[in-house]
Design a protein around this nucleic acid. Structure first.
Length: 321
DNA sequence: GGTATCCGGCGGTACATACT
DNA sequence: AGTATGTACCGCCGGATACC
């Protein structure tokens, strides 16, 4: 379901706290008062309905009445930018809430959690659009907003998926997050393979994607004796950005790749430096110093193809023997 | 047999860096 | 400045496997 469709699921929240039914022996004045309240309530509901019909269904709410979604998506982060933006220009975009399913008169956020936090800190009233949403619609709205903002990191998305998994079938989660079942499966396996306290210690790590987290999960799984938590707790690491902390941690626990017989500096047995060797995943680069090995380099350049073919012929001969 | 899940690989894209 | 190259992220696809 698209968010556009969700926004069409309009139902006015006219469900303001209703006074208990009046008993027969109430004084006429009290009845009149109740009727006035009822009339006022109706007028408010009418006003909301009119604004909804006009597409202006943005209502100011007391932030004390608004609670976060039952599924947390984002790790605590700084909202300084949002604070100054709202302080200077006011709240430009309303949040989406639904009537709280258990607390009459209260609301639950579908999206706009950071905006709500900022507005709470500023002590303002929050502008909100109210919709009656089922639990599924709420998390779909929340997930789709996250996707549209594209600022949730991979691990935040994975944890969001993990929390959704506690109460929704996979198809709801894939729909909410606009991901396929394979991607969901990977997200869950990553987030379940890495201890929660380690993820907390690393933080959201923006820019660190599936493969890197998968690599960390694999390393932890492979060598359970290693306790990367100790590393993540190092003061030095805690002063880094979350992203650098992740990289430092991964580097620290990744086994060193030793390539025997191929030193970085290429030198003869007597110590004469000829050049250097650079290794990467896809290639080996041998750089020869013109001054020290110019003649050898020319020879190699001329005869490289012949040497390759000779070598190949030998190895084929060996295989056939 | 059907469904759910996992896994490896592919192609598109974005970005950084080196080179010309 | 423009181009080439390497690296990483991401969504998707399809095969393999497990489970009912």
């Amino acid at each position: 379901m698209s968010r556009k469709n969700l926004l069409n699921l309009i139902q006015v929240d006219a469900d303001m706290p209703v006074k208990a039914a009046t008993s027969d022996n109430k004084l006429v004045g009290q009845v009149a008062s109740t009727m006035r309240e009822e009339k006022a309530r109706q007028a408010r509901a009418d006003d909301i309905e009119r604004r909804l019909a006009e597409g202006l269904a943005v209502i100011d709410l007391d932030t004390a009445l608004v609670e976060p979604s039952f599924v947390r998506d984002r790790m605590p982060g700084d909202i300084d930018g949002l604070l100054s933006s709202i302080r200077e220009q006011g709240q430009q975009v309303p949040i989406l809430v639904r009537p709280h399913p258990e607390k009459p008169g209260h609301y639950q956020v579908a999206f706009g959690h950071r905006r709500l936090r900022a507005i709470q800190e500023l002590g303002l009233q929050v502008k909100a659009v109210i919709r009656a949403l089922t639990d599924e619609e709420l998390v779909i709205a929340q997930g789709q907003e996250n996707n549209e903002r594209e600022d949730l990191s991979y691990i935040e998305k994975s944890r969001f998926a993990q929390r959704l998994k506690e109460r929704f079938p996979r198809e709801v989660i894939t729909s909410a997050m606009s991901i396929d079942k394979a991607e969901l499966s990977r997200m869950l396996s990553v987030v379940e393979a890495i201890p929660a306290d380690l993820i907390d210690a690393i933080g959201p790590a923006p820019g660190i994607g599936r493969r890197s987290w998968q690599e960390l999960a694999d390393l932890i799984h492979k060598d359970e004796k290693k306790n990367p938590m100790d590393l993540a707790r190092l003061d030095e690491m805690q002063s880094m950005t979350s992203q650098d902390r992740f990289k430092a941690l991964l580097t620290a626990i990744k086994p060193r790749r030793v390539v025997r017989g191929l030193p970085e500096v290429l030198s003869t047995s007597s110590g004469q430096r000829l050049g250097h060797v650079k290794l990467s995943k896809s290639k080996i680069e041998i750089t020869l110093d013109r001054k020290e090995a110019g003649e050898f380099a020319s020879f190699l350049l001329n005869d490289a193809v012949a040497l390759f073919e000779e070598r190949r012929a030998k190895s084929i001969g060996k295989e056939e023997a």
